[in-house]
Design a protein around this nucleic acid. Structure first.
Lengths: 195, 195
DNA sequence: GCTATACTAGAGGTATGATTCTAAAACCTA
DNA sequence: TAGGTTTTAGAATCATACCTCTAGTATAGC
């Protein structure tokens, strides 16, 4: 009955992602609309606000990223190596998906979950759940325990460390030289816990 | 002859820094003016634009940071330990100077040096010179050489790695648990080069 | 073919905040 | 004490960009 949609949500998110790659994070709705070849009215038919559009883009980007990272860690036998592969995966994924990586820098999880658009808060609050579950299971397998402090340490070693090294380069090519650094540093930190 | 100044440049930069700590990086000139107790006209008497004001604040913050970090590395005998201390210094400095650390996140050096206000580009281009000179001399002392690739590696180990771990926390308390992680990771990466 | 429905379409209102402009004030020097 | 110079002071302007509003349009079912 209704007139058929000319633009899907995913196409509009793609346009937003590409517009950000071109114009930076201060991208305007007009620039996103131009990138999509859509008028601004169509965008507001799908998203309540610019904030919600960008928030949804962030959620999609993080979800895709976790998917790839988790799949990578699946292929490795030892828990230690799986954790190291996840860390290196941050760098390789960002290198091969530069504009997705850029979109991942739009928000921080805790900010979006607390002060973001209300319709996104729930989803934002749980976006990391599957990832942390895997992290916890690998931690348990590697150390035989998984208290809060240990999990925080492993999380820092695997994600914060590698992403911290990568993030300054997001928006430009990610240097290859980061990969051995991440590998070595993550491995060393994972060896820290006194067993 | 002239009417005396009521606000020094440094006072206005302090106000901008504190206003950012309160309102975030999207701080408005009105908020900065209120923080300083000054009218907006006075601010424009010292700075050509909001961009230049924030750029100058960034330059001052980076300069102060380098000063402290370089002084810390002076007190250590071995080059290896000096490099590790610089890395840990990123974390301790950010912890003890939270709003200065926040101001350091306003720009990136290469962005400000290329697309920032023209009056700041030169200064921005050279803001890291003294720091990299010290890094080069420590690298030479530690490894007996200092080619470009090695210097990049050491720079990553000392600055990018530690700052990457710290930066996500800037604006909130910097966890103590980061310090041993930085120490271990930096040390491990510095041991990477095959000699 | 006609109608109901939901989308496209983009021009325009509105709000925010940077910047400018004009006037007044304060101090130094003569 | 008067003139000159610089700064304070804040109101007015202007630009930007989000969001809304009204029309028009394309399709599926009857």
């Amino acid at each position: 009955m209704p007139r058929p949609k000319k633009f899907t949500v995913d196409e509009l998110l793609d346009a937003a992602r590409d517009a950000i790659a071109e114009h930076g994070r201060a991208v305007t709705l007009a620039q996103i609309a131009e990138q999509a070849g859509a008028p601004m009215g169509s965008i507001y038919h799908r998203f309540a606000s610019r904030e919600e559009l960008l928030g949804r883009l962030w959620l999609r980007s993080i979800g895709r990223f976790h998917e790839v990272i988790l799949a990578m860690s699946d292929t490795v036998a030892s828990p230690h190596d799986a954790l190291v592969e996840m860390a290196v995966g941050v760098s390789t994924y960002s290198r091969s998906h530069p504009s997705e990586a850029l979109a991942m820098t739009l928000f921080r999880q805790n900010i979006l979950a607390t002060t973001g658009p209300k319709t996104l808060r729930d989803e934002a609050a749980h976006i990391n759940d599957a990832f942390f579950a895997r992290l916890a299971s690998l931690t348990q397998a590697r150390y035989g325990r998984c208290d809060e402090a240990l999990l925080a340490l492993v999380g820092s070693a695997v994600i914060e460390l590698s992403y911290g090294l990568v993030r300054p380069h997001v928006g430009q090519p990610i240097p290859q030289r980061l990969d051995p650094i991440i590998r070595q540093a993550t491995s060393a930190v994972l060896d820290l816990p006194d067993l």
